[in-house]
Design a protein around this nucleic acid. Sequence first.
DNA 1: GATGTACATGTACAAAAGTACATCTTAGGG
DNA 2: CCCTAAGATGTACTTTTGTACATGTACATC
Lengths: 197, 197
Amino acid sequence: MSDESASPERSRRRRDPEGRRRVIVEAAAALIVEVGSEGLTHRLVAGRAEVPLGSTTQYFATLEDLREAALQHLAAEIDAELAVVRAAMEDMSTAPAALASAWHAFLRDMRLVQADNALSWAAVHDPHLRSLALRWFDELVVVLSAHIGVRRATAVAVFADGATWHAALHDEPLDVRLLADAITALFAAPEPQEEER
Amino acid sequence: MSDESASPERSRRRRDPEGRRRVIVEAAAALIVEVGSEGLTHRLVAGRAEVPLGSTTQYFATLEDLREAALQHLAAEIDAELAVVRAAMEDMSTAPAALASAWHAFLRDMRLVQADNALSWAAVHDPHLRSLALRWFDELVVVLSAHIGVRRATAVAVFADGATWHAALHDEPLDVRLLADAITALFAAPEPQEEER
DNA sequence: GATGTACATGTACAAAAGTACATCTTAGGG
DNA sequence: CCCTAAGATGTACTTTTGTACATGTACATC
């Protein structure tokens, strides 16, 4: 019943290696968001990307390679969203509320939330993906550290991660007020000396 | 190379429906911790439980049923650990530090951490598992709410969840001092009136 | 316009996995 | 001691999947 042949005339498409590769990666990324990286199959990707099965194996030697390319694509998308968060930190006086607002905006994008979930889960059992999964976490800590120190920054990032899972499991983000209150509190948490000996 | 026939004499074991079922569920639970609920297969479970393939299909009509039984088993284990956390809340004066300490103990048990990861991930795409995955979260919120209100309790639970993922992705828990500082701060966060209109 | 190369496409094949089921064996009642 | 139902076991069958590869075709070059 699949409309694989929706356009009976489309017998063969133009040659476009880069475009083809892009389409495949994007389809794989979308599928990972929907079914997880473990549910990925060549045939699913081919169907979603509307390319023949053979194309998915031609551009990626193994399914694992395709998976990784797709996860990298998702990580980049998540990372792009962090630009907003970074901007929220410009004015330190409004930082906690602005950060809460920026994070709330991120949480409203279920696609990104589930992308992060998939990436984190995949990284748990594949250390090779750890740096990818922790990219936004580490960057967030770096950005925040300049203002509130490493330990408070880490606490805020941990809370942000928890909020992401909460949003995924409740199909909607926590209200921005709660985020703001929590982040404000964490900004003011005690920061013990790290260098004391 | 598998020592499937370690005891050449063990041609057939005694009849023991309940024990057999238990062994299968426990093997499945252990495997879910190791490879995730999506990596579960009848043959993997049979191998781990050292029972014939047929036994895994006899006690569970479908693999999905076995998966769910195993996840339920893991949820119960996690839940049991919450008893310690509950105890930490008895003396309110030391509550934040005691809670941090109890949670740190939980995070040191990688098996439980990864069990929680697997459960959460599975629940993201299977709403049927949501209540199972949120069991400890909801219970923690209930316990904390009595002392600090729903909103602060939720913030603490969200942080705890984030800390669980952090531990999983770093192969070790955050230091107990950071947990304590963050939880203390969240205990003191502003709690807006919820009923105001 | 010929031609060769790189890409597009369809098909085939072996391995893995879910499931069904026929066949044995145990244990408890007659 | 016999007999039968419930459980234990091994195997076979079908579907799905990763991957290889043979073949077809567009496009740059001459």
